[in-house]
Design a protein around this nucleic acid. Structure first.
Length: 342
DNA sequence: GTACCTAAGCTAT
DNA sequence: AATAGCTTAGGTA
């Protein structure tokens, strides 16, 4: 005879039967374009994200054409390190390689940072099942809309941050770029995120997690002018240095991208070895933006994943013999506007 | 202040 | 956008 109790007789188990893993609210994010699934944030992190921003944003508008809002920090201090370690440990990254030609000499560039990207431009949107529809007609997109990439939906863990950031900054974002700077040798040189496909005066929210790194901004060179004072030129030339700490967020808006350059320079010692993650949210308006971001932030190289044992990014998944993957070469001419990081 | 050393910044390719 | 190689800045004794 069964040992079934009265209690279980009158309270039959509610689980097992119907609730599948993929329906569950805390199911990992998966998609045909992901090399592996990405877990959702543990509650001890996501619960506290709702208390962000921890500090009020401070406007930095005291220089010509500069419009920043600096949250120091934005992410509560109690979760910035756990969030950093979660993302470093759970996301897939790429070390993009390409060639540049300087005069007659061709040089191999090994991008000095790890990157990954999610999102799709305003002309398309993802359905819950992961398929892409046209944003206007709500019908499946034409097969040739994205010729060189397969857009990836933003995983839940990053999409939560995206939504909170939209609310806090009164802006909309459809792309999430993530960069990992493993040591002080990783960097990004001066550039602007002023691609045409972002539209005029784009707003870009940039989060820092992990090791502290200097963020340098300087005005773009201005055409010579007789009417400009030496002091005015000096103020446009002097770089501004923000010591970005874990949890900080910088919202760059208005004419900032059009008129200023920014970089994360290489650094000796100190922060080296701890690693820093940068997350940017931005809004691409046309399909060309999607092609560009995937080409230069995913590329066609190996998938990399954090290895806790060696405390480093290692190639994920072993290639078996006999299934060589064909790789396309990136042309130097296409690279100039390719990167958009910080 | 001065000499020395290293990190940071600049620029042509 | 990245780097090498050079110049300048900054710290230390």
């Amino acid at each position: 005879m069964s040992k079934r109790t009265l209690d279980t007789f009158f309270n039959p188990s509610p689980k097992k039967a119907k609730i599948s893993l993929t329906d569950s609210k805390d199911a990992p994010s998966s998609h045909s374009t992901y090399p592996f699934t990405v877990p959702q944030l543990p509650p001890e992190i996501s619960d506290l994200l709702n208390f962000a921003p921890e500090a009020e944003g401070k406007a930095i508008i005291d220089q010509p054409d500069l419009d920043l809002l600096y949250f120091q920090p934005y992410i509560p201090g109690s979760i910035s390190t756990p969030l950093f370690e979660f993302l470093r440990g759970e996301l897939f990254f790429y070390r993009v390689k390409y060639k540049i030609k300087r005069g007659p000499i061709e040089t191999d560039i090994n991008t000095p940072r790890f990157t990954t990207v999610f999102g799709v431009d305003e002309t398309s949107s993802f359905l819950p099942d992961g398929s892409l529809i046209d944003a206007t007609t709500r019908k499946p997109i034409p097969k040739d809309r994205y010729k060189t990439c397969k857009p990836r939906p933003i995983p839940h863990c990053l999409d939560l941050l995206r939504k909170l950031t939209e609310a806090a900054t009164d802006q909309r974002y459809n792309f999430c770029l993530v960069n990992y700077y493993a040591t002080g040798d990783d960097s990004i040189s001066y550039h602007s995120d002023d691609e045409r496909f972002l539209g005029v005066d784009p707003a870009i929210a940039s989060f820092s997690l992990g090791a502290k790194r200097d963020f340098l901004l300087k005005h773009k060179p201005t055409p010579p002018s007789d009417t400009k004072s030496a002091a005015a030129i000096a103020s446009e030339t002097k770089p501004l240095k923000l010591p970005l700490g874990s949890g900080d967020m910088v919202l760059m808006r208005g004419s900032t991208q059009g008129k200023w350059l920014h970089s994360i320079p290489k650094r000796k010692g100190g922060e080296s070895g701890n690693g820093r993650i940068n997350i940017t949210f931005r809004r691409a308006m046309v399909a060309g933006g999607t092609e560009n971001y995937y080409r230069y932030n995913v590329g066609d190289g190996d998938v990399m994943k954090w290895d806790a044992k060696t405390k480093s990014m290692v190639v994920w998944g072993e290639k078996k013999e006999g299934d060589e993957v064909e790789k396309k070469e990136v042309k130097a001419e296409d690279v100039d506007k390719g990167y958009a990081a910080l």
